[in-house]
C-alpha cells in the first residue's frame, strides 16, 4: 500500500480548507467535504483534488468500502456499486455531483 502518513492528519470532515491550492477556491463544498473526510480517515498518499480518484490517493479495495460507508454516514447519501458502475463515478468531482443531485432530489 505504501500510504504516506505525512499528509494531513486530524482534519475534521467539516473543515473548509481540506483542499490545497487553486482547487480550494474553485471546487464545490461537497468535494471539499469528501477531501476532508479522506484526509481525516484515510491519510491519502497525495493531497486530494477534484480530479483525484480513491485509487490515485492510495486507497485499496477495503478503504474504498470504508470511504463509501463514511460518505453515507457523514452526508446521508448511499452510493451503491450499481450506481458507481452505471454512472462511471470515479473522481471526487463525480461523487460530489451525484451526492448533490441526490441531496436536491431528497429535498424535492
Amino acid at each position: 500500500m505504501g500510504l504516506d502518513r505525512r499528509y494531513h492528519r486530524g482534519v475534521s470532515a467539516s473543515s473548509k480548507s481540506a483542499l490545497e491550492g487553486p482547487d480550494a477556491m474553485t471546487t464545490s463544498p461537497t468535494v471539499q467535504k469528501l477531501a476532508a473526510l479522506l484526509n481525516e480517515k484515510f491519510h491519502p498518499s497525495a493531497p486530494p483534488t477534484a480530479q483525484s480518484t480513491p485509487k490515485s490517493l492510495g486507497l485499496d479495495s477495503l478503504d474504498v468500502i470504508n470511504f463509501l460507508f463514511s460518505v453515507e454516514e457523514a452526508l446521508g447519501v448511499a452510493i451503491s456499486d450499481e450506481v458507481i458502475a452505471e454512472r462511471k463515478l470515479s473522481s471526487l468531482a463525480d461523487f460530489a455531483r451525484y451526492i448533490d443531485e441526490q441531496t436536491v432530489a431528497a429535498k424535492g
Binding site: L62, I65, N66, L68, F69, E72, D81
Partner: peptide, 10 residues
C-alpha cells in the same frame, strides 16, 4: 457481499 457486511458491522 463484503461491502454490505462491512456496513452492517459498522
Amino acid at each position: 457481499n463484503g461491502r454490505a457486511i462491512f456496513n452492517f458491522m459498522m
